[in-house]
């Protein structure tokens, strides 16, 4: 799951930064001339900087290969189910709420009043996908459910006092 990967990657890097800062504090009491330190660590920085730039470039290219904005390529005769979703204070209007496992779905999401967020949660309350629900615009989410069950749509953009009550269930069956 992406959340777990993001969490572990963040932890590793944050831990690494903590160790570096910790080591510097431990070594701060020692007193040495600044010039040799500068010379040595400027050199190290060139290496570290270059590595970081290369690393960022690789990650950028890797993570930009497949974007959630792109419409998936559908197989022959497998047209997606298009679901019109309209958010409003404080509820949802769905053109349909019952789906099949493996059925490619496109949610076309808009809003009747203010900005809302359209977040799809599974039964374990993990966020699977989201988009913004905006007045005057239609954002698309492409989803194919792999597991049957009841999925919840939660509002993910603050929209007024009953924001946290904007929940809609959809059913996915075998």
């Amino acid at each position: 799951m992406i959340q777990t990967v993001a969490w572990i990657v963040s932890l590793i890097f944050m831990l690494f930064i903590t160790i570096v800062f910790g080591v510097v504090v431990l070594k701060s009491k020692e007193k040495r001339d600044y010039d040799p330190i500068k010379k040595k660590w400027y050199k190290a920085r060139s290496f570290y900087g270059t590595t970081l730039v290369v690393f960022f470039l690789v990650i950028t290219i890797y993570t930009l290969r497949e974007l959630p904005y792109n419409q998936p390529v559908y197989g022959e005769g497998k047209d997606p189910t298009i679901v019109d979703v309209e958010a409003l204070q404080f509820g949802w209007n769905f053109s349909e709420t019952e789906f099949k496992v493996g059925e490619p779905i496109e949610f076309h999401v808009t809003s009747a009043d203010v900005n809302h967020g359209f977040g799809i949660y599974d039964e374990d309350r993990n966020l699977l996908a989201q988009t913004q629900a905006m007045p005057e615009y239609t954002n698309k989410v492409y989803v194919t459910f792999d597991e049957p069950g009841t999925y919840d749509i939660l509002c993910l953009e603050y929209c007024g006092l009953a924001h946290h009550l904007m929940i809609q269930s959809i059913e996915v069956t075998e």
Partner: peptide, 22 residues
């Protein structure tokens, strides 16, 4: 410096897709 880490992670579009507004 540590605060930059989760920021960069979340600025990744595929991650943001499931972490934006969490």
């Amino acid at each position: 410096t540590v605060g930059v880490v989760p920021a960069i992670v979340d600025a990744t579009i595929v991650v943001n897709h499931v972490m934006h507004n969490t």
